[in-house]
Simulated scan of single mutants.
Amino acid sequence: MRGPFEVLLYSPELGDRLEALSTSCMRDSALPPRLRELALLVTARRLDAQHSWLAHVDKGRAAGLGAEPLARLARGEEPGFDRRDEEVLYRFADQALTRHFVDDETYAAALAELGERALVDLVVALGTFATLALVLNTFQVDLPAGAGPAFPDVSGFRAAARRSPSP
C-alpha cells in the first residue's frame, strides 16, 4: 500500500470504499482519461497535495496534457490550456475548489462541453480527489522516494511524517 491508502489501513472498511470510489472516478467516468487526470491535478494543486501531483503529472502528460500548462499550474500561475475542454474543466474545477460554487457562465460552458453525466462525474471526482489530498496532507504521507517538492510555494511538511492517525 502506498499513498493515502497506507493511512486508510487504519480504517479498512472506509479505505476499501474510498478505494473503490477513487478507482471508479479514474476508470469508469464519462470523462476521457486526459480530463480525469486534469481534474486530479487541479485538485492536487488547489489543495497543495504534492504527493498526488507527483504520482499523476506523468500520467497526465501521457494522456495528452501539455507540459507547459501543467508547469504553469504547478507554479500557481494561470495555466492557459490550449484545448477548449481542458480550459473549461480547469475553470469549473478551479471555481468549485476555491470558491466552493461555480458561476452560471462557467457552469453552462462545462455542461455544454462535457454533458450532464460527465459533469456529475467531474464533481464527484473532485470531491474524491480532495478527500485523498486531505488524507495525504493531514497524515503527511512522504513524497515518493527521490522526489522533491512539486510546488515552489509549498515548503512541505514541518514535522516528521505521520503514518497513522495516532499521536
Results as ranks from 00 to 15, higher is better:
1 M>K: 10
2 R>S: 12
4 P>C: 07
5 F>I: 11
6 E>H: 13
9 L>C: 10
10 Y>T: 15
10 Y>I: 13
11 S>N: 12
12 P>E: 10
14 L>G: 12
15 G>A: 12
15 G>Q: 11
17 R>M: 14
19 E>G: 12
20 A>H: 13
21 L>F: 09
23 T>N: 11
25 C>I: 03
27 R>V: 09
29 S>Q: 05
29 S>T: 06
30 A>D: 13
31 L>A: 04
32 P>R: 11
34 R>A: 11
41 L>V: 03
42 V>A: 07
42 V>E: 04
44 A>F: 09
44 A>G: 07
46 R>L: 12
47 L>F: 15
57 V>I: 11
57 V>R: 08
58 D>G: 13
65 L>H: 08
65 L>R: 08
66 G>C: 02
67 A>I: 04
69 P>K: 06
71 A>P: 05
73 L>V: 07
74 A>S: 05
76 G>R: 02
76 G>W: 09
76 G>A: 06
80 G>V: 07
81 F>L: 06
83 R>V: 02
85 D>H: 10
86 E>I: 05
87 E>F: 04
88 V>W: 02
88 V>E: 04
92 F>N: 07
94 D>K: 09
95 Q>A: 02
97 L>H: 05
99 R>F: 12
101 F>D: 09
104 D>K: 07
104 D>M: 05
104 D>I: 04
105 E>Q: 07
107 Y>I: 05
108 A>R: 08
110 A>Q: 00
110 A>G: 00
111 L>R: 12
112 A>P: 06
114 L>S: 01
115 G>F: 03
115 G>C: 02
119 L>Q: 01
123 V>W: 00
125 A>E: 00
126 L>F: 04
126 L>Y: 00
132 L>G: 10
136 L>E: 13
137 N>V: 12
140 Q>T: 14
141 V>A: 14
142 D>L: 15
143 L>Y: 10
144 P>E: 02
147 A>C: 11
149 P>M: 12
151 F>M: 10
151 F>I: 03
154 V>I: 13
157 F>W: 11
160 A>D: 14
161 A>S: 13
162 R>S: 14
166 S>F: 15
167 P>F: 14
